[in-house]
Design a protein around this nucleic acid. Structure first.
Length: 750
DNA sequence: TACCTCCACGTTTTT
DNA sequence: CGTGGAGGTA
């Protein structure tokens, strides 16, 4: 009897899903049903009794992907997915560390720092240690520490190859100590700590290895070294790993992802079977042909060619605008036309390489009254007012985290200035305790004693008053009694902030509703720091440490949730809106129509990528991701001139155009560029018109030209007249050059 | 303490 | 061009 959920799978998909007990790598092209294969595999393993729901581990990168997976599993099988180890790397590590906090050397109520919090801590610590933040910028220190952790390195393992890295490594050590003092853990630390826990504790490692006979990994090409090693710890001789990924869609090398892990995986896990999913269910043929042709320019690929059983569809539409404004106007017009043809705005997306490009587009869309939604930017739990409320909650939860205290000790203002704070900090430093501990100590003098004492009293009163209250009411109480509410009521721009604060209460209600069963229900004992208990075969299914009362459980879990899942980028605007986002954030999505804007050298591929090792290849993969987002219609647009960083830049067409067969492209504005009479730039144009070869072919700024020796370029400025006339050309390969028009045999390129 | 002005900076980003 | 941070002044 075949389970219903297997029907409709194609041959390689079915093979992957029903693969007998062994480790395997699934090379899943864009739009090939990757998520479906992964979730159906889980359903199949459970249905056929090869794995119990608690005996498998499925790991993703984003919360969205994890949720999607759980949803699909429950749609296929009548099981309760709660308690299953399905989640993000960070989420699962958090769960593991909460369960084994003592073995991991952490306080039971450790707090998670998001990147903002981490940076704040670094700045604070640098000041305290008198480190020159000019020579050692906090951002670089943050990068240094995170990169080291992502490679599995502690401060002592870092190779101090020069003075700078020596100082950085020193600071790294101090930073880790400070985190330990405060009982806080940054994102990379969740991974590293969890990895070290498994690496050092054989009993624990064996326990998890025996439990997780099946490990499934999504987006495997995005794993970094540490994540890979974490998986190695969890996968024993008896475990099978089922890794799904696409080396052609590896676009996060810049943050440590290494698709070399795909090669290593085959060796380390003795993989014999690599299954390729190449049938694409998303795009029409021309779009796939373009994507395949483009990505063939990359080397060292595992090799894959997408195909579809659907028709070729339309060619790719190419539009070359004179300016970024004109490009935006074009996008607006096409979007309106498509909408009139009945395509929902939400089914169209405008993609760009960098966020800075969105402004012009937003402007044009706003003026044309086309609803749009921009992805990226500030997320819910990162908002100032929300972070303030969370900081109060951390203090109420008895966290020793200095960041929380500093954030709110004088917000809303209650007369605690630098001087008072200084006293607290001195006490904390002298005794090696947290700021909260120091604030509670009765050793302060003068004005500080009173104001600090009042603050401590405030927090303690809130703690008492919320004892036994459900989480949403606790938050409500804290917002009210901390003075946050009245503060924002008096602020002229405070309405939105107040709304976000009530949204926080709502979020807590939803969170409680989702997690109540877990907390109240029959949760097995989780005090698992004793290996003996584990050898006895205890199962760990709980998400949270067993604690004295449910509310404080819930509060701590909620705080972790807030850090790990920063929430939607923007509150769902509900209404149908055009989607604007970077190519990176478009990964995994698909749209009926896609606009890829800014198809220019320097922008896409980005100029900074040219100096990086394999930078161009990563840009090309990014382009590949962009192309494969489109189902039916794809636009590629560029602008000859563009305002960037306050000045006009002239770019030539992206090299990626030359990597897509011309036959797949349809140039929409076929008219030669020099006849285009729209927006023209700069006063030097007059010099050009007299110097040019004739009125029907004037040299002008922004003109693409070809030079016998230097190749292709764009005119960026000009001076002089007649035989004196010179132009400055930005050549793709040769860079900026001044050329005498009389001698340089420049040929215009349409 | 709040506001304002000046200056530096400017890929991609999840957790 | 636009923003965000820092530092100075009322």
């Amino acid at each position: 009897m075949t389970p219903a959920f297997l029907s409709g799978l194609n041959e390689p998909q079915l093979e992957a899903v029903t693969l007998p007990r062994q480790s395997s790598l699934i090379l899943a092209g864009a739009g090939s049903g990757k998520t479906r294969v992964l979730t159906t595999r889980i359903a199949w393993l459970i249905q056929t009794g090869q794995a119990s729901p608690l005996g498998l581990l499925a790991v993703t990168f984003t919360n969205k992907a994890a949720k999607e997976m759980l949803m699909r599993i429950s749609a296929m099988l009548p099981i309760n997915t709660r308690g299953m180890w399905v989640g993000t790397f960070h989420g699962l590590c958090n769960r593991m560390l909460r369960t084994h906090y003592r073995d991991a050397g952490l306080p039971q109520l450790f707090q998670i720092l998001d990147s903002q919090d981490q940076l704040a801590l670094i700045k604070r610590l640098m000041k305290q240690l008198n480190i020159d933040d000019e020579r050692y910028p906090p951002r670089q220190a943050q990068w240094f520490i995170n990169t080291a952790k992502d490679e599995g390195k502690r401060a002592k393992d870092v190779d101090p190859y020069d003075e700078f890295s020596r100082r950085m490594a020193e600071f790294y050590a101090a930073y880790d100590m400070q985190c330990q003092r405060e009982g806080v853990v940054d994102f990379a630390e969740l991974l590293l700590r969890s990895y070290e826990l498994l690496a050092r504790n054989e009993v624990l490692r064996d326990h998890y290895r025996a439990r997780f006979r099946h490990i499934l990994v999504d987006e495997f090409q995005d794993t970094n070294r540490l994540q890979y090693r974490w998986l190695q710890q969890l996968g024993g001789e008896e475990s099978c790993i089922f890794a799904v990924g696409d080396d052609d869609q590896s676009i996060y090398a810049f943050r440590g992802a290494s698709s070399a892990n795909m090669q290593d995986l085959q060796k380390d896990f003795h993989i014999e079977k690599v299954i390729k999913l190449e049938q694409n269910y998303r795009s029409h043929g021309h779009i796939l042909d373009a994507a395949n042709a483009l990505i063939r320019h990359n080397h060292r690929r595992l090799g894959k060619n997408l195909w579809t059983s659907e028709g070729k569809g339309e060619p790719l539409r190419v539009y070359e605008a004179a300016t970024d404004l004109e490009e935006a106007a074009f996008v607006v017009e096409e979007v309106k036309a498509l909408r009139n043809d009945g395509i929902a705005l939400g089914n169209m997306a405008v993609l760009y390489r960098s966020n800075a490009q969105s402004r012009v587009l937003e402007h044009a869309l706003f003026n044309a009254s086309v609803p749009y939604r921009v992805y990226g930017g500030l997320r819910f739990f990162e908002r100032q007012e929300v972070k303030h409320a969370l900081a109060y909650l951390r203090l109420v939860a008895q966290s020793g985290d200095d960041g929380a205290l500093l954030r709110v000790i004088n917000f809303p203002a209650r007369g605690i200035g630098a001087r008072s704070l200084e006293q607290v900090q001195t006490v904390a430093r002298e005794r090696g305790i947290s700021l909260w501990g120091a604030a509670c100590a009765n050793t302060l003098s003068g004005k500080a004693a009173a104001s600090i004492g009042a603050f401590v009293g405030l927090i303690e009163k809130m703690r008492e008053a919320t004892q036994g209250l459900p989480l949403p009411e606790t938050i409500e109480h804290v917002i009210e009694h901390s003075g946050l509410r009245s503060h924002y009521q008096n602020e002229k721009e405070g309405a939105d902030r107040l709304e976000n604060l009530s949204e926080l209460v709502n979020a807590a209600s939803a969170f409680v509703a989702e997690n109540e069963v877990l907390i109240v229900g029959d949760v097995p004992e989780v005090q698992s720091d004793t290996p003996v208990a584990m050898q006895a075969g205890a199962e760990y299914t709980a998400d949270v440490p067993a604690n004295t009362d449910n509310k404080s459980d819930m509060l701590v879990t909620f705080l972790a949730h807030a850090a790990l899942e920063a929430g939607e980028h923007q509150a769902l605007a509900g209404a149908d809106a055009l989607q604007l986002m970077t190519v990176h954030s478009a990964k995994g999505l698909e749209f009926h129509a896609v606009f890829i804007s800014g198809m220019e050298e320097g922008l896409f591929p980005h100029e900074n990528s040219l100096t990086e090792a394999d930078g161009i290849e990563e840009e090309r993969r990014l382009m590949y991701v962009a192309l494969t987002r489109a189902r039916r219609r794809l636009y590629l647009s560029l602008a000859q001139s563009r305002m960037l960083h306050g000045q006009t830049r002239y770019n030539i067409a992206s090299r990626f155009f030359t990597e897509i067969p011309e036959i797949l492209l349809k140039r929409i504005n076929a008219r030669p560029r020099y006849q285009d009479s729209s927006v023209r730039s700069t006063g030097t144009a007059s010099a050009l018109s007299t110097a040019g070869p004739g009125p029907d072919m004037p040299w002008r700024i922004g003109q693409s030209v070809m030079h016998a020796k230097f190749g292709s370029g764009v005119i960026v400025s000009a001076e002089g007249r007649g035989t004196e006339a010179r132009v400055q050309v930005n050549f793709r390969d040769a860079g900026l050059k001044w050329l005498m028009l009389e001698y340089a045999k420049l040929a215009p390129v349409a």
